[in-house]
Design a binder for these strands. Structure first.
Lengths: 204, 204
DNA sequence: GTCTATACCCCGATAGAC
DNA sequence: GTCTATCGGGGTATAGAC
């Protein structure tokens, strides 16, 4: 047989390299428990790697690992956004679908899996510039994906850019509120209001 | 003289009791550093108290202290909301003012002081039911304050309740985005969009 | 690249004098 | 109510064999 372990595999069925497994484990654990709440030993264990391997790939230690974890979360959510925005040409409907998707992810994980970068970013604010920069880049990327879709739907350049800000802010806040309240309500309602807001800028 | 120390005083100039000083220090530190990032010894030091005093008032340890800290943050933000909503009868203008106030607090603290409950709640999600409940109650209280103001401005009962959800979600998310990006933009824009959304539900 | 052992530090919590 | 001393455990990070 070509693979000799039970380690995680990617979506093509290939075995994942050690570095990739470590980054994924770090991203998931920090998403759920925050930066300070997640230990390097726990990450190594979850990734089926040894402490030595972790420091081999991330000589900068926990901070360097957190930067990679945030970038991984960045791409993860960017993928979801791209998928939802391309499947539905009407951005208002796409935003409703996005909220539904986030709510589903929250519910099926028993309200554990919120935004993949928020907890890490918030727990290191003001004391780890590298992590903070990676988080800021993630937010900016998500905004530009949303802005592009809004422009494609005929919304004016400036309006689209500003709307994208509020779309990301509201998605973040509603996911947070849903997680804290253990309820899908905040996300369901946010989807409706974002759709209404976006429609109010559509040309007629 | 009536007070013999340099300890913190309340707004009437009276010296604060030990318990109150500890709660305030815990609230501020956890707001900035999260639950796991804040040590009990650090809290005691910041509050001019000893470790023994902290455990005297909070025999339940760090978790019990965190619950008190979240409740303190709850009242802190509720006070801001009440002030802004009562100073300006038009809720749309009040929301803009609220965003301006949050942005100012963030900027003047060098982007350290975000929402007083978010970091604590997020860092303990799913493993400290008491803290989570206190955070959920805070969100619910803030929502009901906003809903009341919206109803007073003539917005229908159901619309007001749903709008209040999105107002709190968006305020939370925009404050988070502003903190991560170290920019007032997300809050400035959120204020405009929330005002537009609220106006769209006003009777004419 | 992978693994084990360990140095060193700080954590939450407790005990008991005052 | 306040204070100091300390326990037991877990944290990050490193050293060095393989």
């Amino acid at each position: 047989m070509r693979t000799k372990t039970t380690k995680a595999q990617n979506d093509r069925g290939e075995a994942l390299g050690t570095r990739e497994r470590v980054v994924r484990a770090a991203s998931r654990l920090m998403q759920r428990q925050g930066y300070d709440g997640t230990g390097i030993k726990q990450i190594a264990q979850e990734a089926d790697a040894t402490l030595g391997s972790v420091y081999h790939f991330f000589p900068g230690g926990k901070q360097e690992l957190a930067v990679a974890a945030v970038r991984h979360g960045d791409e993860e959510f960017a993928g979801i956004l791209r998928e939802v925005l391309h499947a539905e040409p009407d951005p208002a409907r796409a935003l409703v679908a996005c909220c539904r998707l986030l709510a589903e992810g929250l519910r099926t994980s028993d309200w554990a899996d919120g935004c993949p970068v928020t907890a890490t970013a918030l727990g290191t604010a003001g004391r780890a510039p590298d992590i903070q920069r990676a988080a800021a880049e993630a937010f900016a990327r998500w905004r530009s994906l949303v802005a592009e879709a809004l422009r494609a739907a005929g919304i004016a350049e400036t309006d689209a850019a500003e709307l994208a800000h509020t779309v990301i802010s509201t998605l973040e806040g509603a996911e947070l509120a849903a997680q804290v309240s253990r309820s899908e309500e905040p996300l369901r309602i946010a989807g409706q209001h974002l759709a209404r807001l976006a429609d109010s800028y559509r040309p007629r």
